[in-house]
Amino acid sequence: MIFTLILGFVLLLIGIYGMLSQRNLIKIIIGFSIADTGIHIIIVSIGYLRNRTAPILNSAVDISKAVQQVVDPIPSALVLTAIVIGLAVTALMLSFVVELYKKRKSLSIDDYQELKW
């Protein structure tokens, strides 16, 4: 569906803008999670086919004609995997933030400049 594709791209751009423009470390991770949601919506909407049901072959679907009645199952499987990994990566990033805060007592990314150039 074209609307969800546009929505996904807009969320991706908002997330990237947040990652680039924010100075607070937790805000940067929030931007990352928004971009993550946007990418998932893009992938799922590519697999959508008009007037079809979910890829679950119960009594609602005529099994002999299942290929003409269900949406694409592969993007669903990919996104399912990506969401779980997204959680793990977000948790790892947040634990890095907590460790950094213990060292420098600051959440601003401007305070973490070891190099001049």
Partner: peptide, 8 residues
């Protein structure tokens, strides 16, 4: 859910 993937 509207896009037909209840698992996701």
């Amino acid at each position: 859910l509207i896009l037909g993937s209840p698992d996701v």
